[in-house]
Nucleic acid binder design. Structure first.
Lengths: 338, 338
DNA sequence: CTGTTAGCGCCTTCAC
DNA sequence: GTGAAGGCGCTAACAG
């Protein structure tokens, strides 16, 4: 393992010159630079990360906070993770994945030990203790999702009310008048999960706006509960002709129950899901979906965080609500109302 | 940010004592230890990761090498990532996710800079250039998957031939005699992808052993190609009554084509998939599946790697082929042969 | 444009 | 059982 001192000696320059050749933080004559770079190449030198981190007080590492216990281990999260990792790599950062739960201070400890420069917080609640913690401690972070009060907080999120509006508008255009929304709740924190709260509120407004009747069904993120909920729904309100699902994990169960009842999608029941294009493609019949741009969100999360990390003292706070787009598929889950 | 020197001063001891209190590498009197720990608590001290890494020459970070271009972004990989991250955290390591491709030396550079102590390699080919690279450079690594020659290499993998045998045995027991296998190929490297090669060979043997006739269909990891392949298969060999799929990404397409042809699963065609239990649950009708223990494999990958990292010079090489288990589900994709 | 030289915070050998 | 001190490899003043 060669060090800068080795390179400096071989190139007949000082260590700082080698350092500056690498960082470009001060002008170096072309010929000196060449000589140094040549030695670096010959020695297959790679600057030591720990030495650099110690001296510069930055680890060039960011953490993706993905609390597994609040999610159903299926879903777009992989798209978030992969796209975030790629974008981080592109910007010269390493991405570490942390699965610590809401209460856990493991990740805070990573920051305090200087192992991580900043954090991307996923599965954000309206009033999220992690967000509060990081804010108070001055830890740089960005959210995928957003809180009730986002003053001074950087985030990227899908515009859920608008996503629901797009779905409702589409269904109403096809003649549907009794529409149900099946959202995603994870137990007790039902009231605090932003996407659920926002899409429910949006649904209420959209339905009124389009002169339809809306029904709301909370559902756990599992195929099992999806089956249970749809069975109950159809028994209770047989007049419902369309369903909007925000619950990707429940889709399999929704489909199964409909089939078990001898009904057909989309003939007897139309289904629109807010989910990733890849998952919509997975279902049979294919889903009409309001696309959840997970990869884009992962990328932007990293982008916003890096801006905070590298921008000066008063970098502007970036907040971004993404516009939903609907993709109607061949043989998709939509039919004119009966 | 308190440092060890601060703690030492406040506790009235030397820095080395603080260090040893933390590492436990030499005996400290109970009362000194208490005094030091008390100061650590009061100052909310967290040992600096860079300082520690620089002095100890270990980053306590491992990388998960997950080349996105060779995989279909389904949910199974997420199970690997999450379980690996959890296990790493449990053992005091950070897990970084790297999406670099086969040729890329980005990850090697991370090792050479000391940013990473070891690597978990996923999507291993029979003759994998990355494996060869790491072996030659002496980089500690473990594979999820395995090569043609695994001498001296540590790995965990599913026993694919056995997985196929279990599926074939099950189908034959139900009376099927003409069985097709749909596997997963990613373009040109078809011949080099271990699971495909091994399961195909296993399939050939199993089919003979059970006195059935086997058909082999390679398929890209996408719903689209799954649809194409099944359509071709049924046109070419209408006598096929059962399919074994190793291609999770293609499942949606397989199902869709079968439905589009007016056929029913499992009445007209039985389907068994080698995939994770969560995904099998997602399909309608539910799949009978030979379980792919992704979470377990992620965990064991970390375990094996940490053993290599922390074990002495001659830690035994750990190699593990996991036994497949089949889960037959209610209303599953199986029916007696016509 | 280039060199010298303090640290950055921790580990660990050596000495007591 | 404890302390002193020399690195680990790099960055960034400070000084030409």
């Amino acid at each position: 393992m060669a060090t800068m001192a080795d390179i400096a000696k071989r190139a007949g320059v000082s260590v700082s010159t080698v350092s500056y050749v690498l960082s470009g933080k001060r002008p170096i004559s072309a010929e000196t630079r060449e000589r140094v770079l040549e030695e670096i190449r010959k020695a297959d030198f790679h600057p030591n990360a720990a030495g650099r981190a110690l001296a510069s007080r930055r680890s060039r590492t960011i953490a993706l906070l993905y609390p597994v216990d609040t999610s159903g281990l299926t879903r777009m999260p992989l798209e978030f993770v992969i796209s975030a990792a790629e974008e981080a790599g592109r910007r010269g950062y390493a991405l570490i994945v942390s699965t610590s739960t809401a209460e856990d201070e493991e990740i805070l400890s990573k920051v305090q030990r200087g192992a991580v420069d900043g954090i991307i917080v996923m599965e954000v609640a309206l009033h999220d203790p992690r967000v509060e913690l990081f804010r108070v401690r001055g830890v740089p972070f960005t959210m995928i999702g957003h809180c009730a009060d986002n003053t001074g907080l950087s985030y990227v999120d899908l515009d859920f009310p608008q996503a629901v509006e797009v779905a409702v508008a589409h269904l109403c255009e096809l003649g549907h008048r009794r529409i149900a929304i099946i959202d995603r709740t994870t137990g007790a924190e039902e009231l605090g999960y932003g996407p659920s709260v926002r899409s429910r509120a949006g649904f209420r407004d959209s339905v009124v706006r389009h002169g339809a009747t809306g029904f709301h069904y909370p559902c756990q993120p599992s195929a099992e509960d999806g089956a249970r909920v749809v069975a109950g729904m159809l028994a209770e309100h047989p007049g419902i002709t369309a369903v909007i699902s925000l619950n990707t994990e429940a889709l399999g169960g929704i489909y199964r129950t409909v089939a078990d009842l001898g009904l057909r999608i989309p003939t007897d029941l139309s289904v629109v899901a807010v989910t990733s294009a890849r998952i919509a493609e997975f279902m049979v019949p294919q889903l009409t979906a309001v696309d959840f741009p997970a990869a884009l969100m992962g990328r932007m999360g990293v982008e916003f965080l890096v801006h905070r990390l590298e921008g000066g003292e008063h970098t502007p706070i970036e907040q971004r609500l993404l516009e939903p787009t609907i993709t109607v598929r061949q043989s998709a889950g939509l039919a004119p109302a009966r």
